[in-house]
Amino acid sequence: MCTAVFRDRIHAALIMTGGLVVLECCVFDILFQNNIVNAGLLELTPIGFFLMLLGQAHVLAESFAETIRKKEETLLQLQASLERERKSELKFLKSQIRPHFIHNALNTILSISRKDVPRSQELLVEFSSYLRGCFDFKNLEDMIPIEKELEFIRSYLSLEQARFGDRLKVRYDIDDQSVRVPPLILQPLVENAVIHGIRPKPDGGNILVYVKRVGDAVKIGVMDDGDGIPPERIEKLIAGEESGRGVGIYNITRRLKKIYHISLCIQNRDTGGLDVSMKLPLNGGRYNAESNLG
């Protein structure tokens, strides 16, 4: 008890005081019964115990009130966290509806329709598929076949290729389509590669979308041959402290951590450009963040 008081434990001093009061009362009563002290017929031990019980009742009441207060604080923090998550998810969904992209896509289709009607009709089908892919899910944590995500990506890239022409070259390296993924987990990375990796280059560039089996996991990612990202910005992007690329990357990282307990792997390529990937377990298990770096 002395150690608890010394370490300033909560209510330790009050409990120790109550114990000392009872001890002093017992000593006094022993001395009184042996006629060593004379204090009439008054015995103090019952009073000491009563005072100690009052102190204990006070401690219990304080502890109960503190527990209720902490639970209320935890509930408020949880509500605030859920509200932040809801706003973040809403922001992510809104980010998929890009007025400039829709405007540019429709202008491209209109321009092509003047000289190549069949091609414009194909692009309208791709545009319809793209819009459906933006909203064709009920929850961002639902699992969909990777092929469905790839169809969405192909529609998006077909529209961008129609716009950029030979400046945008796309390749796919897909050797496993058995994995199921959360919706919109890959498309924002493809869009980042187009907007931030290829579009700034006067001569355009290349994008590779890949799905590769790696042991009991599948590695999914996007490569481009743009200018890459300064290493000091990568952590800021993952933490959501950067605009532009940061919004999509932060939201994907947050979802990966929530579902799989992993993070995105962002690497500058030796030949130039960026490689952004993730390792997802085939069996629905979870990996530590460190295991996602390979």
Rank of each mutant, 00 (worst) to 15 (best):
C2T: 15
T3R: 13
A4I: 02
F6G: 02
F6I: 07
D8V: 10
D8K: 15
I10R: 14
V21N: 04
V21K: 02
V22Q: 02
V22T: 10
V22I: 14
C25E: 03
C25T: 09
V27H: 08
I30R: 09
N34K: 12
I36M: 13
P46H: 07
I47T: 13
G48S: 08
M52Y: 14
L53H: 05
L54S: 11
L54E: 08
L54M: 12
A57P: 03
F64E: 04
A65T: 08
E72R: 12
E73C: 06
L75P: 01
L76G: 01
Q77C: 02
S81A: 14
S81W: 09
R84Y: 08
R86C: 06
S88M: 06
S88V: 02
L90S: 11
F92K: 00
K94L: 15
S95V: 01
I97S: 04
H100C: 05
H103D: 15
N107W: 05
S111Y: 07
R119S: 15
E122N: 14
L123P: 00
L124S: 11
Y130Q: 03
L131V: 14
L131M: 14
C134Y: 02
L140A: 04
L140F: 12
E141W: 07
M143H: 11
M143W: 03
I146V: 15
E147L: 08
E147P: 03
E149K: 03
I153H: 05
R154F: 04
Y156M: 03
S158K: 11
A162F: 04
G165N: 10
R167M: 08
L168C: 09
R171L: 10
D173H: 13
D176C: 14
V179R: 02
V181D: 01
I185D: 04
N192S: 12
H196S: 05
G197A: 10
G197L: 01
D203L: 06
D203C: 06
G204N: 10
G205E: 06
Y210I: 04
V211N: 06
K212W: 07
K212D: 07
R213F: 08
V214Y: 00
G215D: 13
D216F: 08
V218Q: 03
V218L: 00
G221H: 01
G226H: 00
G228Q: 10
P231V: 11
P231F: 09
E232Q: 12
R233T: 06
I234S: 02
I234V: 13
I238E: 01
A239T: 06
G244N: 09
V247G: 02
R255T: 06
K258I: 05
S263M: 10
C265R: 04
Q267H: 11
L274S: 00
D275C: 11
V276N: 03
S277T: 13
M278V: 14
N283E: 14
N283S: 15
Y287W: 11
Y287M: 15
N288R: 13
E290K: 11
G294E: 12
G294C: 05
